[in-house]
Design a protein around this nucleic acid. Structure first.
Length: 115
DNA sequence: AAGCTGACTATGG
DNA sequence: GCCATAGCCAGCT
């Protein structure tokens, strides 16, 4: 997907996240090759707010497993609601057993491909 | 065109 | 172990 813009690639990866799984901005950034520039991932997701194929941005949290992006959702509680609906447990705005449900694209997808 | 911004992360004190 | 600082890079004003 060399033609895809940076955020398009971010969307593609985020869509590959299995239900009930979560990942961090850094993991996605690393997979995209942008290193630790996780800000770009979050910024990209900010743009995904009205994308046609829904982008499960709620499955993307910071490295601490906290729902830092929830404030940017249509409703601040939507992210938590969605995660809970996926079988996860949200405690104090953070994912319980975050590492347990962690999904690393670089590890799972490796370089197979996205989208 | 130049500078600021940002849903982060790593490192140092 | 918590607070402060810096690096990150693509898009927007």
């Amino acid at each position: 997907m060399p033609d895809a813009s940076f955020y398009q690639r971010v969307y593609a990866v985020v869509r590959q996240i299995p239900k009930g799984k979560v990942t961090s901005y850094g993991a996605i950034a690393k997979y995209l090759g942008t290193g630790m520039s996780s800000r770009m991932v979050g910024w990209a997701l900010n743009n995904c707010n009205g994308e046609d194929p829904f982008v499960p941005a709620h499955r993307v949290v910071n490295r601490n497993g906290l729902l830092t992006g929830s404030h940017h959702f249509p409703t601040p509680t939507l992210m938590e609601e969605l995660l809970t609906a996926e079988g996860l447990t949200v405690v104090d705005n953070g994912i319980k057993d975050f590492q347990k449900h962690f999904w690393d694209p670089a590890k799972e997808l490796k370089q197979d491909e996205i989208d």
